[in-house]
Design a binder for these strands. Structure first.
Length: 320
DNA sequence: GGGCCAATAT
DNA sequence: TATATTGGCC
């Protein structure tokens, strides 16, 4: 507060301190090493000139502004503020796999005296927290996992294991699970009513019918109240809602063995994958959100095979 | 330690 | 707003 941005003859103060053009990787420069590109069958970008880049930018802009808008204006303006360091890469939902993009937060600026905190410390390693974005696909996997385990076993740890997603942590799942349970409870509560306008994500994927297997007897002597909620057991009684009687992903609990999903990567050979979900197509999803799927993170996603995406990022993507 | 949940932070 | 983190509790 109190910081004023003065604009003088087109030059704003905020420009001070920004890296000079020379320090930046020009857009016209390909960020993908040739070997990498060929490894992923990525067509080598024809060297672009600055002019090309500019032209492309303009056409992008005009298409965004123009009638090109697919849905109601829902695009993130880049003009805004760099809110949280989470930058999302648009995802092509159709048939495409998840992408994870890690943006390096130029946490630089040691110059900024009072860098209040954040997690400085850590010797140089500015590890910013990773924020996982639950894309429809990821969520689908999550729901499937929950469905496969009985409610009883659907705990963060097992869900996480079942999902078998590379950088996913128990905390990620726990957090999501918490929210998901709330959503499910709400839905069951008012057994008729569409989703509450929020949670488009959850609404787009039917919540699986209540536990099948899992002996109901085993009372969760544990503290949690989920199992024995006072609310009417949703059991079959619910009937009314549960929109589509969605075919269960899997009839019984045979180990689903989903194929590991790499959040960002995809097999070099492209679309052969996702067999599991492909089976049940509900073309009902029309999400109107930007599906930014990615995780911005700094920690090493141990287990990750690749890290980058052919798009940007990866500049200081060391170790290989 | 793991899990649940509510509240709170980012 | 969505996700993460924390604290209390079992």
């Amino acid at each position: 507060m109190g910081e004023e941005v003065r604009i003088d003859e087109g030059v704003a103060d905020w420009e001070v301190g920004l890296p000079s053009p020379d320090d930046l990787t020009p857009l016209s420069q390909s960020l993908i090493p040739a070997e990498l590109a060929s490894a992923f069958r990525i067509q080598a970008e024809p060297t672009r000139t600055l002019l090309d880049v500019n032209r492309a930018s303009q056409s992008t802009l005009s298409s965004l502004r123009g009638g090109g808008g697919h849905s109601s204006g829902n695009f993130k303006s880049f003009s805004g503020h760099v809110d949280d360091h989470v930058i999302a890469e648009e995802e092509v939902e159709e048939g495409s796999d998840l992408k994870k993009v890690r943006m390096e937060e130029s946490a630089d600026d040691p110059a900024i005296d009072n860098c209040t905190d954040d997690q400085s410390t850590a010797a140089g390693k500015t590890s910013k927290k990773a924020r996982l974005v639950w894309t429809p696909k990821l969520h689908k996997r999550f729901v499937d996992a929950v469905a496969h385990l009985g409610l009883k076993n659907a705990v963060p740890k097992t869900i996480m294991q079942l999902m078998n997603v590379d950088g996913l942590t128990r905390e990620n799942v726990a957090s999501h699970l918490q929210k998901y349970r709330l959503y499910v409870k709400r839905m069951q509560g008012l057994s008729n009513e569409g989703p509450s306008s929020s949670d488009h994500l959850f609404a787009s994927i039917p919540v699986p019918p209540q536990s099948f297997n899992e002996s109901s007897s085993a009372g969760p002597s544990h503290g949690n109240g989920i199992a024995n909620g006072s609310h009417s057991s949703v059991g079959n009684g619910g009937t009314a809602n549960n929109h589509v009687g969605m075919p269960m992903p899997m009839p019984y609990p045979p180990p689903p063995q989903m194929m590991p999903m790499q959040m960002m990567g995809m097999a070099p050979h492209g679309h052969g994958f996702q067999g599991y979900e492909a089976a049940h197509s509900h073309h009902n999803h029309h999400y109107q959100q930007q599906y930014s799927s990615m995780v911005q993170q700094q920690r090493d996603w141990s287990g990750n095979k690749y890290n980058g995406y052919p798009h940007h990022v990866t500049q200081n993507n060391n170790k290989f």
